[in-house]
Design a protein around this nucleic acid. Structure first.
Length: 274
DNA sequence: AAACGCCTCAACCGCATCCCT
DNA sequence: TAGGGATGCGGTTGAGGCGTT
């Protein structure tokens, strides 16, 4: 796999490009294991590799690093990517920092080949994560949504606006309270359905933000005038608990109308996956 | 079995940012 | 503060895999 070495005169003369061989991999791993990596520029010469430092860094970072987790992305990892992408956009390195063992390149590829297509199939704009088939004015010609999926498509813009307002409020609160550590990453919001609602559309504007948790890595940090609070991770590491204390949906079960509904819980749409 | 087309993902490019002098 | 080199990041490419006809 990979690409062939293009015949470019802009490349450093004589340096090999294209797919790495086992021998090259072995040289790179051996060298870094013994000496670490200080200067990528000088590393290839010291390691006996006929590659540029940039190529060595990429090979190490995206493939050879021992802590790289390979294999399929779990449902939880996919949810984290979707959540963070809805807030951060294409900040792959930031997203990768919240998925231990995953590289930015891997996440970017997974997004482009799977998640982006899934959003489009769901009728969501992969850039804004907003419904692409409804306008935001909810004008009169729109019929009531016939099911939960369509409800979510219908109401996501409003929900997202409310959550973004809460997000800003929280960040401002952090700025005003220097005794609190800064949030290790942009807060992710979870919503909870009213368990007593009688039908899929009853009390929908009253979706409430989560209340209490036993998980110490997540903290309710703020409330709005309606008493709603939200979770942010209180972990100071770069690998925070990826989800607030909500039972993640298992990969096997599709979860229509669960009591606990995560914002942008795209797993609800697993039935329309390719 | 062969041909074709689509999909995946490792690796590249170019620009942005960081860091040192 | 400016300049230049090193490193990081996001977008793009294209060989090889795989499914379909």
């Amino acid at each position: 796999m990979g690409r062939s070495p293009p015949s470019s005169s802009s490349n450093q003369i004589g340096l090999k490009r294209g797919p790495w061989t086992h021998e090259e991999d072995h040289k790179l791993v051996s060298f870094i294991t013994k000496h670490g990596y200080g200067s990528w520029r000088s590393l290839p010469v010291l390691a006996g590799l006929n590659r540029c430092g940039k190529s060595c860094r990429l090979r190490w970072a995206n493939y050879l690093r021992p802590d790289i987790k390979r294999g399929k992305f779990s449902q939880q990892e996919q949810q984290v990517i979707l959540d963070l992408h809805s807030i951060l956009g294409n900040k792959w390195s930031v997203i990768a920092s919240h998925l231990p063992g995953r590289t930015d390149n891997e996440i970017k590829n997974f997004w482009n080949t799977h998640l982006k297509k899934r959003l489009i199939k769901m009728g969501l704009d992969p850039v804004t994560h907003m419904p692409a088939i409804y306008d935001n004015t909810l004008s009169a010609h729109h019929l009531p949504p016939p099911n939960l999926e369509n409800f979510l498509l219908f109401h996501l813009p409003t929900l997202k606006q409310q959550l973004e307002a809460l997000q800003m409020a929280t960040l401002q609160e952090y700025l005003q309270l220097p005794q609190l550590p800064p949030p290790p990453f942009t807060p992710t919001f979870h919503l909870q359905y009213d368990r007593n609602m009688s039908g899929p559309y009853a009390n929908l504007p009253d979706l409430e933000v989560f209340g209490a948790s036993d998980d110490p890595t997540w903290t309710a940090v703020s409330g709005d005038q309606n008493g709603a609070s939200m979770w942010v991770s209180s972990s100071s590491s770069n690998a925070p608990s990826p989800l607030p204390p909500v039972e993640a949906n298992s990969e096997s079960e599709s979860a229509p109308l669960t009591d606990e509904l995560m914002f942008n819980d795209y797993s609800l749409f697993s039935d329309i996956d390719p």
